[in-house]
Nucleic acid binder design. Structure first.
Lengths: 376, 376
DNA sequence: TCCGATTTGTTCGTATGTATG
DNA sequence: GCATACATACGAACAAATCGG
């Protein structure tokens, strides 16, 4: 548990970092803060005292406590010519993220930058804490994979503050719509379309789609899933779209699949999966039910991760640029930093967002059933 | 008139400057100072608090307040209060490293440290460049996975320099023998022994061992391989030990295995692998040769990575602590930093190296052949 | 210029929690 | 277990500076 004066301290610091308090603005008086946080004056003074010694605030007796002008202080702190870049991802160790990080790291360290990594574990509170930390230090650029990009983001202010301090940042994999940042993403809608269209072309008409919808990747892939059905004039049973969020990813999709399999004469012949990780888990369910892939059911993954190649049934899946994307992100942020240092406006880089066109890699997890349909 | 807490402050400060209090000496307790200056405890704490933030004193709850070692602190405090730790690994994205990094990162960021990551790609030139960079900046601690620990290391000087600058560092997975650093490692010899002993206990007598010998993990595992043979009084055909280095890891072991398989009536029944990654590659070779695992040949991996569970034949393998090791590394470096700041000698931590005892996880890639031998 | 309200500065008292030896 | 020492928190009083009327 954190102490009271520390919560007060953090709350005030947050308001400064996110820009609620602007430089030289008077903050709430001690007695106001006492009421606001229901603490004694002593506690408020402790919190403020710390922030004063850290340079966030300054006080004037009889007048009030004021927000310090951080921008000037920062410039002094550029002791030494360290070049720092922060990478924020949802996860560090899982799945395709290590590859993305490596791609970025190798390129950035080539250019003499030091790379600091942060992971949010897909928790927006962690994202906020990390952004606060980044804002209170000296970074030349930030590469962000948004946390829960599917939801509205409570940390928008921090990103706007990055802009105010002219710290370039780019987003990878997804982006917050409200910000329209420079971004390096896949065309996820197209990807979802390709997954689905592939199966439909192979004669599948009864598909289930599983999509994680707390990030925009998932919602876009779902959109592609629908689009492919429409284009091929195949009706969708709404119950055949299963959405889940990060917290449910180890339970809900599997449970839902089990439910479907339990129904006799279910006509399901194909599964469209949010990603390879999920595909592997669903494969396990099918295996315990003695359902053969691709003989009985076809399955399509997404990301072309190591899982796709290492499994018993090699997965048909959508390619993800992974380390290439990391490198592209590095290059873009390097460009932005350089143009900033040359005093050019960021407008010059509006065209610099990258959208990767998805490609399908066909392996062994999908089967053409159009013939068998004809013959049967 | 000056304030009371300021007179107390000055009095203490004077005693430090004139040398009455020497570094790391305990100063009077708060209650003693209350009597001495006839002021309240609050006033004493104000004075002491200021001196702590200025770096003249440090406090230890339950123990007392101490005079800081001013000479060293000057060096550290110039930059400001960023807390930085560097992690150097051979690879970032591959295999078990992401898990190790995550374990360390989560613990360190919990404590407010910023984590910078560097990867050597197992190249000693890169290791040198990274160490140069770290030495020229302000890091509070370094976690290193040694590069090519099996070879003599040309960068020893840089590590000695870290010591000279009293920057604590620890090594994980392996260590350079010349340095005898604090380290967090596995008992790799025991691990190799367990791999081999397990197969021998199952009746296998003709084993091939594959070991990457440019790091000490490999040589130690090889040692365990030999030891298990000796203990069980089984002779080894020297040609059944295949060593390789990082550059050859995608070719040599596989080629050697193919050669062995090409020999008719080879009696090989088991493969002991440097790690799961190699085991998977060898599995692929066996698969293309239509050799069944474990029916025809048993195979043992090392590290209990995701590969062990995800493959067609679930691997019997040695457990690696992974993220737990990362956490332990983080805790150890945090301890070292704290003890350094308190002026304790590093000797207190000689016992702090950790050696994980390996455990065998038995899955489906090994088979007992002692019975079939009896019956045949 | 003075007054009074507000705001921060200094000081004391008290109580309880937690770590150390 | 106990004494010691620092950590956190609440309350109260008065001083000093500021600011608007």
């Amino acid at each position: 548990m954190t102490t009271k004066y520390n919560t007060v301290r953090q709350a005030i610091k947050s308001k400064i970092i996110e820009g609620t308090y602007t430089p030289h603005q008077k903050i709430s008086s001690e007695s106001e803060l006492m009421k606001e946080f229901s603490v004694s004056r002593h506690t408020v003074r402790l919190a403020i005292g710390d922030l004063v010694t850290e340079g966030w605030l300054y006080k004037e007796q009889g007048s009030g406590t004021f927000c310090a002008d951080r921008s000037k202080i920062n410039n002094n702190q550029v002791v030494g010519n360290q070049k720092n870049i922060a990478i924020i991802t949802t996860y560090i160790s899982d799945y395709i993220f290590p590859s993305i990080i490596r791609g970025a790291e190798s390129r950035l360290s080539e250019e003499g930058y030091q790379v600091s990594i942060f992971s949010t574990n897909n928790d927006q509170n962690n994202e906020r804490r990390i952004l606060e930390k980044i804002l209170s230090q000296k970074f030349d650029g930030v590469i962000v994979e948004p946390t829960k990009s599917g939801y509205s983001n409570p940390n928008i202010n921090y990103y706007l503050n990055l802009e105010r301090l002219s710290i370039p940042y780019i987003m990878i994999n997804a982006y917050y719509d409200e910000l329209e940042p420079i971004s390096i993403v896949m065309d996820d809608e197209k990807g979802g379309f390709l997954q689905t269209d592939h199966l439909i072309k192979l004669g599948h008409e009864n598909l289930i789609g599983f999509f994680k919808t707390d990030d925009t990747q998932g919602t876009k892939r779902m959109k592609g899933f629908l689009k492919a059905h429409r284009k091929n004039k195949i009706a969708i049973n709404p119950s055949n779209i299963i959405t889940y969020n990060t917290e449910e990813k180890n339970t809900k999709p599997m449970d839902e699949l089990k439910k479907v399999l339990a129904v006799k004469n279910n006509a399901i012949t194909g599964l469209v999966c949010y990603n390879d990780e999920l595909a592997m888990k669903l494969l396990d369910i099918l295996r315990t039910d003695n359902i053969q892939v691709p003989e009985d059911i076809s399955i399509v993954g997404y990301d072309d991760s190591f899982l796709a190649e290492v499994s018993e049934v090699k997965l048909t899946t959508i390619e993800h640029p992974k380390s290439e994307m990391g490198e592209a992100a590095a290059n873009t942020i390097l460009d932005l930093i350089q143009s900033k240092n040359n005093g050019k406006s960021e407008e010059d880089f509006n065209g610099n967002s990258t959208v990767y066109a998805p490609n399908l890699t066909i392996r062994k997890s999908t089967r053409d059933i159009s013939e068998s349909k004809v013959t049967s």
